[in-house]
Design a protein around this nucleic acid. Structure first.
Lengths: 329, 329
DNA sequence: CTGAAAGCGCTAACAA
DNA sequence: TTGTTAGCGCTTTCAG
């Protein structure tokens, strides 16, 4: 014994080795109930020495809770799951859940089918849900059964704590930087109409630009490279004197840069380009992308932790969005 | 009833509504055992109508299997988990497991601690393991308890089926393309020494280059942008007449391009640059990156499916690596 | 503070 | 083919 772990140990093994009942061993290990100090320490030492790993599955079944956290991303089509951002959120969520022996799943929540949330609520294998890109409609339909074990990355509600980046501040900083460096015809490639937390950036853009007496030039779109490329072309077609483009996502900003390159337009000489999110690739382009950095991992960790804790936080936890100056603007 | 799902249904509810025993309902739903056609269809119809979702947790406990699949990435340090590639594998694995209602976890397997595999083997909440970047040493230490429920993305063994990209073919195609387009001083920024499946590419590079009577110029490193940047500088310092750089990963290739750009070296005019993997960013750079494409999602899906099926495939399933010609080479 | 006993929801023998 | 009976490993009343 010691080195070699043969068949998996059960709590019973630990309990009998420590000379206590299974119930006491359980209490000692979970700390859920009072135990005498000596008993507790003995049980813990024995468990440690034997290399005991609690079976999360049995624990979940007995406790009446699920064994996985679902990252549920809403959007118009299932391909919202096919996205590096989602994978990153999933990775961070997995990291946060791993300590508890809990796995994660990734699912699509159709925008127009709030019932899909009820599926999750009815599934007793689900411990909790991390909502991504949620909408007010979806939040309004939140099943009672989910209350207290759901968190949102993006907008929240009275029942759903939210973990979000302060993109008002971030977008404002970007636009003000463009203005401060002499840009006077600033266009924005904004996000999807259906996504509330992407409106905020566009709104701030409009406010700042109007306050400076500059024209408002917004094009809605999505977060992708292709949208950035076509969006930039459209911007220059509609407003040829544009001297700066602020894209809602770095990928779109890179698309805009590619379009400008194709047109022989110098960045940042002729047109400045700024992104949003600070994806790793933002630092890799030539010229490197000026953007606002978002702590996606920390945000996802916060949301996952809230879900695991079960109905703690209320309201919104804001994470900073900070300007990162590189070469493109 | 119908629309509103109140408290979660159990198999018992379905069984009694269908007028059969719980066992029969179970058999009808899982298809694990023979059931009369009318009974089976009745049970299924009732389950469907009531909106019954089996509790994966209870299922796993009763079946003596786990409820999550662990994506276990080996490497020298825990930061191997902090990698878009791992998140992508995790996402694909999650997608493959979602149908069965099982979650995924992401864990680090220290290179020098094969015992960490025993931890996973001893954890009864683990349904199976997808190994990423595994080494021969790790595979040799495979615990018996894991046999039949593990698959590897990368090298495999007699006990571990492997799902891998045919990077010999892909790397060969890249190098031959460089040669065919007139490059005669081709350097390679290779992968880590400890990672077997990255050796193959370097080996093929050497073979092709030697067969063509060209000099072998290899620098080991890792898959990162920074390594590509410093590697390219080192290449030009040691072999100033280099006219092509083949990097083991697109991120490194972009790093090399950034270094060359800083030096005022034209790509592909002075030096061609080729990557490997075909990450999304490969198409976004200026110039766009010539590389070899790898179906990471399909590979991960294959591995996850094998793990869920439980000990089906043996040997290696190869996935194609195909040359993608863009602008950089 | 601790032990005995009753489940959590499901699958898998074992009978019928 | 079906129902009955035991558990899977754990948490949690409920007594003691």
């Amino acid at each position: 014994m010691g080195e070699e772990i043969r068949r998996a140990l059960t709590l019973e093994d630990v309990a009998s080795a420590a000379g206590v009942s299974r119930a006491t061993a359980s209490r000692a290990l979970t700390g859920s109930d009072t135990t005498s100090t000596p008993a507790r320490e003995r049980v813990r030492a024995v468990a440690e020495r034997m290399g005991y790993t609690p079976n999360t599955v049995a624990r979940a079944l007995a406790g009446g809770v699920g064994a996985r956290v679902v990252v549920a991303a809403s959007g118009p089509a299932p391909d919202v799951l096919d996205d590096p951002y989602m994978w990153r959120v999933l990775g961070a969520t997995a990291a946060a859940c791993d300590g508890e022996g809990i796995g994660v799943s990734l699912q699509w929540l159709p925008l127009d089918a709030p019932a899909s949330l009820h599926r999750l609520a009815a599934d007793r294998s689900v411990r909790g849900v991390v909502l991504v890109n949620s909408t007010e409609r979806l939040l309004a339909e939140l099943p009672d059964a989910l209350r207290g074990r759901v968190a949102s990355i993006g907008i929240g509600s009275a029942d759903v704590p939210s973990f979000d980046v302060d993109n008002r501040a971030g977008a404002g900083a970007v636009v003000r930087h463009l203005h401060a460096t002499g840009r006077r015809r600033i266009a924005m490639l904004a996000g999807p109409q259906w996504l509330p937390c992407s409106w905020r950036s566009a709104q701030v853009y409009s406010e700042v630009v109007q306050a400076a007496g500059l024209p408002v030039r917004v094009l809605p779109g999505d977060f992708g490279f292709e949208n950035g490329r076509s969006g930039a072309l459209e911007v220059l077609r509609r407003w040829p004197d544009t001297d700066a483009i602020f894209a809602i996502c770095d990928a779109a900003a890179l698309g805009a840069m590619a379009a400008l390159r194709g047109l022989g337009v110098q960045v940042p000489g002729d047109v400045a380009v700024a992104g949003f999110d600070d994806l790793p690739v933002a630092a890799w382009s030539g010229p490197a992308l000026t953007t606002a950095t978002h702590p996606v991992t920390r945000i996802a960790t916060g949301a996952a932790t809230a879900v695991l804790a079960g109905a703690p936080a209320e309201g919104t936890t804001w994470y900073p969005s900070e300007l990162v100056l590189r070469e493109s603007a």
